[in-house]
Design a protein around this nucleic acid. Sequence first.
DNA 1: CTTAGTTAAAGTCATGTTGACTACAACTGA
DNA 2: TCAGTTGTAGTCAACATGACTTTAACTAAG
Lengths: 255, 255
Amino acid sequence: MTLTKEAGRYGMERQPFASAANVSERLAQPPALAISTVIFALRPSEASGRPTLWLPLVRRIREPFQGLWALPGGPLTQAESLQDAAARNLQDTTGLAPSYLEQLYAFGGLHRSPSQRVVSIVYWAMVQPTEAEMAQESENVKWFRADGLETLAFDHNQIVDYALWRLRNKMAYGPIAYHLLGETFTLAQVREVYEAVLDRTMDPANFRRQLKQTAHIEPTGEYLQGGKHRPPRLYRYTGNIAEDSPAPHPRADNA
Amino acid sequence: MTLTKEAGRYGMERQPFASAANVSERLAQPPALAISTVIFALRPSEASGRPTLWLPLVRRIREPFQGLWALPGGPLTQAESLQDAAARNLQDTTGLAPSYLEQLYAFGGLHRSPSQRVVSIVYWAMVQPTEAEMAQESENVKWFRADGLETLAFDHNQIVDYALWRLRNKMAYGPIAYHLLGETFTLAQVREVYEAVLDRTMDPANFRRQLKQTAHIEPTGEYLQGGKHRPPRLYRYTGNIAEDSPAPHPRADNA
DNA sequence: CTTAGTTAAAGTCATGTTGACTACAACTGA
DNA sequence: TCAGTTGTAGTCAACATGACTTTAACTAAG
């Protein structure tokens, strides 16, 4: 089982190893370090009216990729941790507070940006659709449907795809779905989130049974009024997001 | 559901957001970027003789933390991707080829290093115990048991703990265990890996049944000779590591 | 007031998986 | 030949899952 055989498995490019002698040369021009954030929120689809995934993008106002849409991001400030930087991006872009925030991946390919080499540490977040209704669209900030995106700047299409993949993976287990909803919600709304993200219908009865067993939710005692039919019971999330599994390391960012 | 309430959930530190005006100031002194690798391998325990997890550490030969043990790592070369840099660390340190290599996490706390701020992109790897028997110990490179480590340099204890947590998590599902073994192995050896990493005994009969159903292995037709008892059948791993779930994005590092 | 229509909510049943356990086979060494 | 050990297969109850049925609660039309 040689290295060459193994290399194909995890996509490592074979390449002669640099000698340890030219350390000074390596440090000559360190790569730029950027923080970006993939922000997911729920919005009713124009067509069906059912909730679907959306994310905000910003328009590039300079080269490279001027005019194209890109993930919100920027350089890392000296005074802020990685997670703080991601949260600040989110605040600057949408004006919303993140209901969930987690590191996605560090992208460090050699040719992600045409001129200088850029290493991007990307976070992904979820915001609740309640406050402000995510209204803060402008000339250079716009919300897009998460699936079927047009061509974005840099490798941001791949990054969004990866974030979507991880969102779906985390959704399958763990109670993250609640962070796309408001403070209170009906069980049908939770199911709609699962159906939208995982892209398949689920039996309402079985879904209810499973939720009551595993997830930490409790009825508020109130009911959602205003509908045309029997008003559904409202619930509240009571669990702690830090114990999701598989999940990121709690406080891994703080040191 | 305010930001303050939410902040406690994922451990984000509340902090005034920097204004967008002082971008030039931010770029004045960019953080240093380092690549480190947590390398796991299987070794028989001195006491019980059963296989346990070990990892190689290097001694710091300069300040800060001079004399303490640390994860192998170094700066990022301009010409190599993040994963290549991690693989080079592994090669320089152990001389072994990685059987598995995956990004762990980007650690970017403000005070990880006393003097300059350092952002570390950490990978974790698994090597097979066969070739070279991991013999390459020296004055400044030594193997340690993964549990019960002494105090390491920087925040490397936390990083190792996180890597262990993720290894256990990945082991529970997915067929990564084979990457700690050689090309051929017995089912009992696989079970011993699970027992060592997950730290609990497993029923041999049930373990066999599950493996045959899910994991992709096939008998080689040969048997392991030399034991005192009935010779066990030898197996070979036939699956593709890229389809593990949950897993890192295939080729996320290449762009 | 009655009834049709819709949704919430709970229950039923067959199927598959899991963990604990038993039984048998194969081999070594005394 | 026998005792001891390990590989291998099978059984069984407990449990979770998916598909489905049934009842309850409510609105709106007639």
